[in-house]
Amino acid sequence: MSDVQGSKPSSATNPVDPFLRIDRMPSIWCPGCGIGTTVNCFTRALIECGLDLDKVAIVSGIGCTGRVAGYLNLDSFHTTHGRPIPFATGLKLANPELKVVVYSGDGDLTAIGGNHLIHAARRNVDLVVVCVNNHTYGMTGGQVTPTTPPPAIASTTPYGAFEEPFSLPLLADSCGAVYVARWTTYHVRQIAKAMREALQKRGLSFIEIISPCPTLYARRNRLGDGLAAMKYYKQASVIQNGADTRQVGIGYQDKIICGKFVDRERETWLESYNKRHVAALGSKFRPYPTGLPEVSEPAGGNHGHD
């Protein structure tokens, strides 16, 4: 942690403090909200992953989880609604030395930003995507999202949600993500471990974290406070590492299948980019840095414009 800028280790300091913008505390999150728990896990993963934190950037969209970027003491970007993934794509491709993390909510990443999620997974851009899924738009007052399980009540489904929700691990898996996991905010150690593994992975990793929104989702559905949510997660979670992602959909207050579902290798966008152009252009191609140590150095030379 000596590389943490401005850190002043002290026995009275919370070990996560150096990772946070303390001058921005307190956060905007409600009591019982799970987002702060996930941020705590993320800082643990940062401690453990051994990355140079000057080379870790975090990108968020809009919404409650969209505020995460602003609280982390990293290069941090609070973008537009639904668009952190294409922003992160540009950032990563422009500077492949960076480890780029997208941290946003279910509404941001899977409704307005759903198209970007599936294409980033298909391209296998080297990004970690953390989706905090609280089944609702918290910032705007608790509207239905693509992950709200029917027949939950939301402000825009006052008589109960009725659309089929996305199962996010299935979506990410089927689009080609190389790492797919789901945990709840009850599973703090597992979240931190999944985040660490994702940070050390190459390609698009997707972590879904089921998280309570006591103020809106839980209150409208009379599900109790944050503690009640922890009890539900503890009781309803079933850990099935390697589960078939077609079998992990979440019903209303039903069991939640958790675990690491996918962990595989695929060429990243930049690796494919270099490979294709070397094949097509040979020495006329000037390979683009991938942020990885070079395995084989293609012959350079002709930089002409022919």
């Binding site: 922003f87 794509t89 950032l91 990563k92």
Partner: peptide
């Protein structure tokens, strides 16, 4: 917006 991420990448 990809271009804006890339701008911050230099």
């Amino acid at each position: 917006i990809a271009i804006q991420g890339a701008m911050w990448g230099g």
